[in-house]
Simulated scan of single mutants.
Amino acid sequence: MNKIINLISDTVTKPSPEMLNFMMKAEVGDDVFREDPTINRLEEKVADMFGMEASLFCPSGTMTNQIAIKVHTQAMDEVICDKDSHVFHYENAGYAWHSGVGLNTIDGNHGKLTVALIEDAIRPLTDWYPRTSLVVLENSCNKAGGTHYTLQEMQEISNCCKSKGIKLHLDGARIFNVLVEEGFTTAQLGEIFDSISICLSKGLGAPVGSLLIGTTKEIAFARRLRKALGGGMRQAGYLAAAGIYALDHNIPQLKIDNTNAGKIRTTLSDCPFVENIRPGQTNIVIFDLKEGITANQFIDVLKEKNILCAAFGKQTVRFVTHRHIQAEDLDYVMRLLLTLDY
């Protein structure tokens, strides 16, 4: 096959011709002065989707997560999250730089926390312990292999946090992959969390952008924080238009992406070079190679066959399916995996 099959991430997706056409027709203005009608429309649309008061368009999911942490905490507080969380591994310790807080990283169940784990992690109120002020859930959990929380699991954690006076934030970078798998609604999520971050530039196929969703008061503060972080944008309605198009047209495709990832997992289970496949039911596949095979060696072999993927450890590899992976691409990948000789 001459075509490059890129399984590095769902962030490699590019706008479709239809999305690009929609973007070019956007009405724009200066968003710092709240005069970009397309950004205003996107922010209102997303807040309404989740049944929350307001939302804020930002350049990245890292920015929305970091703003959420700052909104919900004070310096010297502590945030509870799983040890595989994106906010711990992939945001440059921004929690310490921007908010002056620490993380209490919990060894959860493949990226997932439980009420019992959270209750055990909450600090006693003393003069020498940090104050537990926030819990962050990542759904789905990237580093754990695309594992996800059910609605009931999130509701139970929400009830726990409310009873303890602790805020609850959702890192929902890939929450729409979970929604199409589990069948609950965005409005149900809005009832559970104090703030939610969603990403438009992964499986949804927009070129850039994330939104932070919360109360009117908290989003007003978040706008100030966004400006302080250099995230104030001007005529960014062209980008917001891509997000509107993605939310209106591209969500159903995510179920296909999840299904394709499941087919790859099944294929890998028959491959003798695979030691272990991480559990997951969304569009991320992470697996460990047998002793003596490094991830870099494996990636080089696939690259020679026009398949791109990413190392997630010395002997760990990640595939991510997305809207650009067609049926013939998937068949080629699965046939090749079954013929590799290690």
Score class of each variant (00 low, 15 high):
181 E>D: 12
186 T>M: 10
164 K>N: 08
198 I>R: 06
161 C>S: 11
182 E>R: 03
212 L>W: 12
186 T>I: 01
196 I>C: 07
192 I>A: 07
183 G>C: 09
207 P>F: 15
191 E>L: 10
163 S>M: 05
182 E>I: 02
213 I>V: 14
181 E>T: 02
163 S>K: 12
187 A>Y: 07
197 S>W: 07
167 K>D: 03
173 A>T: 10
194 D>Q: 03
159 N>D: 12
191 E>F: 00
172 G>K: 03
197 S>P: 00
215 T>P: 12
195 S>L: 08
212 L>A: 12
179 L>P: 01
199 C>Y: 09
161 C>F: 12
192 I>Y: 07
194 D>F: 04
204 L>A: 10
193 F>A: 04
193 F>K: 04
180 V>M: 11
166 I>G: 09
196 I>M: 09
175 I>G: 02
195 S>D: 08
198 I>C: 08
193 F>G: 02
192 I>P: 00
163 S>I: 00
162 K>S: 09
166 I>A: 12
214 G>E: 12
204 L>S: 09
198 I>L: 09
172 G>D: 03
171 D>W: 09
175 I>H: 02
159 N>E: 14
198 I>V: 14
192 I>E: 07
183 G>Q: 04
196 I>S: 05
181 E>Q: 14
190 G>I: 01
167 K>R: 14
200 L>Y: 15
160 C>T: 11
166 I>R: 11
194 D>K: 06
162 K>M: 03
191 E>G: 11
215 T>D: 14
183 G>K: 02
182 E>H: 08
187 A>L: 06
160 C>P: 05
169 H>G: 02
160 C>M: 15
211 L>N: 14
212 L>H: 12
194 D>A: 05
181 E>F: 04
190 G>Q: 03
182 E>K: 06
184 F>P: 01
209 G>N: 06
162 K>T: 00
187 A>Q: 12
193 F>N: 03
177 N>S: 14
188 Q>C: 02
182 E>Q: 11
174 R>M: 15
174 R>W: 07
160 C>D: 08
169 H>S: 10
187 A>N: 04
159 N>V: 04
201 S>T: 06
214 G>K: 14
187 A>C: 00
206 A>S: 15
182 E>F: 01
202 K>Q: 13
179 L>F: 04
162 K>L: 06
189 L>W: 02
160 C>W: 10
187 A>V: 03
189 L>P: 00
162 K>H: 10
214 G>N: 13
190 G>C: 03
174 R>Q: 14
201 S>H: 11
213 I>F: 14
210 S>G: 08
204 L>M: 14
203 G>V: 02
198 I>A: 08
203 G>R: 07
212 L>Y: 15
210 S>Y: 06
206 A>R: 05
205 G>P: 11
165 G>D: 09
185 T>W: 07
163 S>C: 01
178 V>I: 03
197 S>N: 14
213 I>Q: 11
197 S>G: 15
166 I>Y: 13
212 L>S: 12
201 S>G: 02
194 D>Y: 02
